[in-house]
Each structure stands twice: as C-alpha cells, then as structure tokens.
Design a binder for these strands. Structure first.
Lengths: 139, 139
DNA sequence: CTGCGTGCAAATGCTTTGCATATGT
DNA sequence: ACATATGCAAAGCATTTGCACGCAG
C-alpha cells in the first residue's frame, strides 16, 4: 500500500504521522485498536500522540479508509476497508432507495470474536421501509 | 409482560429493582440506554442506582433477555430480545457447527440510525471456516 | 440465616478537547 | 504566509468496582 498515494487520493493532507499510521495499520492483518497503533509507535520509537491517532482514525473513517466498530469490550476497533461493497436498500412502500456500505463487516468481527469462525462469504437480502413511510403508517 | 414471571423463568432472583427495570424497559418501544432507565426512575421517584442498572443489564444480556450493541456514539444501547431466532454456522471444511443468535439486530439498529430505514425482513446466508481449520490452512 | 443484591462514592479506562507550537502546501 | 495538524496536559463520560448494609429465599 502506498500510504502517500492513498492520502492524496482522498484529499487528505499528507503528514508524517498519517503515513506512519497508515503503514502501521497495514501491518496488522485485520482488526486493531487505537492503542495497538500507539504501542507499535512506541516500539518503533516514533513519537505520535494517542490523540493524534484518534483524530486520524476518525478522519480515516470519515473518508472511508477504515471501518469503526465495537465488539462489546468498551472500546473501538478498526479495520481497513477492503472489498467495500455496498447494498441497495429500497423502501417497500414508496420505493425510495438508499445505498449503504455493507453492514456485515461488524457482524463478521462479532462472530469471529464469539465463535472463532471466519466468515468467507455472505448473501444478504433485506426488506425495509423508509422513515417517512413508517411515520405515515402510524397515522 | 409479567416481569416477575420473566425473572423466575430465567432463574434470576426476584428483586424490586429488577421488576422496576423490566417494566421500564418494556415501556420503551425499542432501543434504550442505561441512563434512559435511570432518568425514567428519577421521573417516577424510584431510587435505583446507575450501577445497579448496569449490573442488571449485564445480567439480562447474559440471560438472553436483552441485546447489547453499539451505534458508534460511545455508549451502549440495549433492546429487548424478541423473536430471537438463531443461525446455524457450519465450517466449510470440517463441517463442525455452531449456533449463534441472529446477528442482524445490531445491523438493523445501525441502519435505522444511519438512514432512517427500518428493516422488516432479512435473509442471510453465510459461509464460514472454523478457527481450527483456519490455523491448519496456514501451516 | 446466608448469600446475593444494592446504594454510594470513588476509581477506571477509553476518548475528546483546549491551547500553544510545528508542519505541510 | 496561513491554515491545518500535532503534542501535551487536562477534561469528559460511560461504565465498573469496593465496601458496608439490606433483603430475598
């Protein structure tokens, strides 16, 4: 992964901290937390503050570079977004559509965490009603 | 909902706090947090400590009465478990099986939170490999 | 009676924020 | 040059814990 390219591509200002963080993240295969990055920095004697890590993880999430989720341990975990396919949600009533990032990432991690099983593939179909139609129905 | 019955059924010692909490939870339709319960207690002038609420929510989660999940707001949300169907996960390699509670609850809430859409139905198929087979593959 | 449940107060731990300085474009 | 990013220290906030007392079985 070329960290610098990745940053430019997303219109994020290129800084040393960000390059280091991206490279470190890339070294973990899979899930990591803010202080995993912090620890790795200390190992490498790179001085990056935890707050900087949090600020950048937030930024990366916003820019679609990482996913942020929770496994119920009272802290956030992150994961590089790869193969980030999307799903189309269509309201069964008014047929309005929205696109969402595949929500299975977090489910995968949850299942891995609870059972040790690794999801290799999924097929997800959902039916949904949009908020407005729900409200109309109530009246 | 008969709170007392619900508790006995799950072999949980019946206490006033627990009955109150269950009844309050039942009054919310849908998602709630620990301090939603706390606030409602204060409104009703019932003296239940937040720590008691947390302790009991943990217990209820363990006993399968509620689901605990996170919407990315830095706090936990809970939801009464209704229609708690399960999924069978089978390892594609050794065919070992595990049963998990349907993981879509959290997805539902996440989607409701992000898009306003309410999921009304889902169909989920997954392929998975168990931890041991993953390790064997690595060698 | 006896152990579990609870209130209270304090601690914990992750995450966020304010501010002065440093850095990238 | 100028806005943005960062380090540092301190604050914030949800959740947890220790302890003495109270209550259910």
């Amino acid at each position: 992964m070329d960290a610098e390219f990745c940053l430019r591509e997303k219109n994020i200002k290129v800084t040393n901290s960000r390059i280091w963080i991206l490279n470190i993240i890339d070294g973990f295969n899979g899930v990591f937390s803010a202080d995993n990055i912090f620890d790795r920095c200390k190992e490498k004697s790179i001085n990056i503050d935890l707050s900087t890590i949090y600020r950048n993880l937030d930024l990366f999430e916003e820019k679609g570079i990482v996913d942020k989720f929770d496994l119920g341990h009272g802290k956030y975990n992150y994961k590089i977004k790869i193969d980030a396919h999307q799903h189309l949600l269509e309201c069964s009533i008014c047929h309005k559509e929205v696109i969402i990032d595949c929500p299975m990432t977090q489910v995968e991690e949850l299942i891995k965490n609870k059972t040790g099983f690794i999801l290799t593939d999924h097929e997800l179909k959902v039916k949904a009603i949009c908020g407005e139609c729900v409200n109309k129905e109530k009246k």
